[in-house]
């Protein structure tokens, strides 16, 4: 296996006349946290949708673990180990936290055309789900229905569900969106605990979080990557300061 888990090659996507993704090349190393930052409308969500399979690129390719996944549907990508968290929280609201996570574990455990045994008492589904919740310090919430949780808690469950699919790469789309400071802090803690053990492609507005978490950062402006490098490089990069931070 190569050290590059995801390679994006000359990806292009336009809507009408707007180039939302303009010849983007990018790679994510194994067990690296790679953050993409950029001003509003830079095309971050468009990019992540193409990676997860929600949108089809006009041209270019996406190579995941040496396999071309450019044209695979969402659920196939997921089975290959590509997990996505949604920018808007998307969970099964009527079920408990544990049910949500266990469903993700179940998805990895063969097909679910099993009609008889009560799924809520299968320990090889509930056990790992509970472990993930415990790692995230959420075990107390296991039996709470998701619709009764706070926004910040839902965002954390969102990550827990993504983790439960045992992904090789996690696409996190603004995990801190809409959170208060203390909620953000516990999310940063949760993501920090994954540093070095999971490959993560992180899209985030919260600069403190990005510079704390990322091993490398790419800057996307008007659909184009203008710089990639370590947090230190990016801080000092004149292009970035000019284009993104608005300095002259």
């Amino acid at each position: 296996m190569s050290d590059v888990i995801l390679r994006i090659d000359h990806l292009v996507k336009s809507f009408g006349g707007v180039q939302a993704t303009d010849d983007v090349c990018l790679d994510v190393q194994r067990n690296e946290t790679h953050a993409i930052i950029g001003p509003n409308g830079a095309g971050k969500t468009t990019l992540i949708s193409q990676l997860s399979g929600g949108l089809k690129p006009d041209s270019g390719s996406i190579i995941f673990n040496d396999q071309d996944i450019t044209n695979l549907p969402v659920q196939k990508r997921c089975r290959l180990g590509l997990a996505r968290s949604f920018q808007i929280t998307s969970l099964v609201m009527s079920m408990t936290v544990l049910d949500n996570v266990a469903l993700a574990v179940q998805a990895q455990d063969g097909h679910s055309f099993r009609f008889w045994k009560p799924a809520r008492s299968i320990s090889k589904l509930r056990g790992p789900a509970m472990d993930i919740l415990a790692d995230a310090n959420l075990q107390k919430k296991a039996d709470t229905v998701v619709s009764a949780l706070s926004h910040g808690e839902r965002r954390q469950i969102e990550i827990a569900v993504a983790l439960a699919t045992n992904p090789q790469l996690m696409l996190l789309d603004e995990p801190m969106a809409g959170m208060g400071p203390s909620e953000s802090a516990s999310m940063v803690e949760m993501l920090k605990s994954l540093n070095g053990t999971k490959s993560i492609l992180l899209i985030e507005h919260d600069m403190d979080a990005v510079f704390t978490l990322a091993d490398r950062i790419s800057v996307l402006v008007y659909g184009r990557i203008i710089a990639t490098g370590s947090p230190q490089d990016i801080r000092e990069n004149q292009n970035v300061r000019r284009a993104y931070l608005g300095e002259t």
Partner: peptide, 16 residues
């Protein structure tokens, strides 16, 4: 069953 939970999950949130 496993099947039933998937069915109910899809009722609530198919995208997920």
């Amino acid at each position: 069953s496993r099947f039933g939970l998937v069915l109910q999950g899809a009722k609530d949130n198919e995208e997920r």
